[in-house]
Amino acid sequence: MTEKHEVVVMGKAWVYKRDHINTDEIIPARYLNTDDEQELAKHCMEDIDKGFVGKVGEGDVIVAGEDFGCGSSREHAVWAIRGAKVATVIAKSFARIFYRNAINCGFYLIESADAAEKIGDGDKVEIDYKAGIIRDKTAGVEIKFNPLPGFALEIINDGGLLEHIKKKV
């Protein structure tokens, strides 16, 4: 299995400048009667941008302000984003439970205020996880980011928390 943090991905950036984009906006509770990722993906970001699912493509990234994913503990928010084939979320900061859920799911998040400021909506971006660099091809800028801490990378590279703990139980 390729280690997730060594992959270089390329996609389009969908920028939501706002702070506090919450889990109710990412996946409204009216869809929480299922835990099917593909079903949830159909409603990803629905209450902040109804057109999101129609325009997002594989390897694209979501860019946002402070406190992304605040609110509920619903991991469905991570599943909806992952199910929509989004490669990562770049935000100035993340809410605690969302951040933890993403790591536990093996889903890489990038915390970078610099990137959240510089990346424009629709820009072509390339993410080099190993080097810790985001290259905004449209704007022609390179932005360095701090990779996830070691213990989080370990969980992500194991394919999520359950694979990680499976070794122990």
């Binding site: 619903r74 991991e75 439970i97 859920n101 536990n104 799911c105 213990f151 999520g160 928390l161 359950l162």
Partner: peptide, 18 residues
Amino acid sequence: TGIGSTDLAAVIATGELW
């Protein structure tokens, strides 16, 4: 403290959490 489903699965199986 509140946790998501993966954490919940881990703690149900092991009784521990990071």
